[in-house]
Design a protein around this nucleic acid. Structure first.
Lengths: 225, 225
DNA sequence: GGGCAAGCGGAAAGACTTCCTCCACTTTCG
DNA sequence: CGAAAGTGGAGGAAGTCTTTCCGCTTGCCC
């Protein structure tokens, strides 16, 4: 799960500390964009990364460059997790589901569409190939699951992609990051199995099964502070 | 599906045109908050409602008052649709699903949590009762579906509520409102039935089954403009 | 159908937020 | 150890959003 961006900006390799800061910024940017949208203040990203604002600007000349780097990293990680899901799970349906769970973990689907809508130049080669490679891997997972007969035939690429988007965006409100993540995985399981009780006994769904009261206490409907 | 707010602000009834504008503003506020978040410019809401900004301020002294009114209306409509779902569908499981589809239509779940997180005083009586009545109706739907044995036993109130939130928030990107809504309903159907192919032949899922290419052309990953 | 209270829109002042550069100081590494 | 590379944060510029004010319009009651 390294998903690294090459250490170069185009020419000279970065000094070790600079490289470290660059990665911190990229990670912080992903989280902040996910939580606050594509217009989040860059200063917040810098703070979250534990660096000054100038460091961010030195590495990424403007907001668009930062977004582009985040998206690029996201595509590359997507390719990685899709590949390893296919490698690790012999059963094609389970491989697809495994991929979806991993996608929730890296928050890729929550950040990519929100940023892409704001970037002007998508036609650059580096981006196109990263995106193409990722899409190809995911499509292969879906095709495999379809061929095996386990995946509903009318489920398309867009359905899988968009459902992951829906699941990975944080729920509004004051709940903790941990609870949010657990609920995302729980809801993915519900999606996989469906809401209807299964006649031959239900597979047990994991994750926090919150009542109305518990939801109020810790959730998005809670009276804040 | 009227879900009206009483025509009074507390004392004198509003003049007919003012009443009309107030409703317009409330509707526009719901949509704008859904699409742009709780910090959306109030001027945008006024414009969407087809009124001047002053009209908005005359009716709602500040942002919090407007939010409060939107949330209050949302709770009241929730009660309505939960009630009519129970009335119209004899089968308890189908009644619950019917309710969830209606909830997507009125966008209630997309707007309420985002706003509630920002409002300070939730403890006022009017709000509490509206909320309590809505919650009670929904809980009744869930209980009924559980009792009938058709709903998975480990599905809780929070699951239903939060899944509706996930489904009703618009997907990021440039897709049209119509497509967005159709996809929300489609994905709800997938959630109900599950991703796995059903052994005894699949129920046909309605709505736009987009391929990767179609998604790119019209969707959140599309190169914009 | 006339009078007037109620309602209206939009301009603009002011508060607040965010961007982004500049420079004196610190760190890495050959 | 010294030069090149990297750093943080202050602060002016630019932009966004809020909120009020006032001359004009509209619905409503007699």
């Amino acid at each position: 799960m390294t998903g690294d961006i090459p250490a170069v900006d185009g020419d000279r390799p970065l000094r070790a500390d600079a490289r470290r800061n660059r990665d911190q910024i990229l990670g912080a940017a992903r989280d902040v964009f996910v939580e606050h949208g594509a217009n989040a203040p860059l200063e917040l990203i810098a703070k979250r990364a534990g660096t000054g604002i100038a460091t961010l600007y030195r590495r990424f000349p403007d907001r668009a460059a930062l977004m582009r780097a985040v998206v690029l990293q996201a595509w590359r990680r997507t390719e990685e997790i899709a590949t390893s899901a296919a490698d690790e799970e012999p059963d094609p349906f389970r491989a697809l589901i495994h991929y979806m769970h991993s996608a929730l973990d890296i928050r890729v689907a929550a950040v990519v569409p929100a940023l892409l809508a704001e970037i002007a130049e998508l036609d650059d080669v580096e981006m196109q190939t990263a995106r193409g490679r990722a899409a190809q891997r995911v499509q292969a997972l879906i095709d495999g699951a379809h061929r095996s007969g386990a995946l509903r035939p009318d489920v398309t690429f867009a359905d899988i992609g968009l459902l992951v988007v829906r699941l990975s965006r944080p729920l509004p409100g004051s709940m903790s990051r941990e609870l949010n993540d657990e609920l995302a995985h729980r809801h993915l399981q519900l999606l996989v199995h469906g809401l209807r009780a299964e006649p031959d006994g239900d597979v047990k769904i994991q994750g926090p099964a919150l009542s109305l009261e518990e939801l109020n206490r810790s959730g998005p409907l809670a009276p804040p502070r």
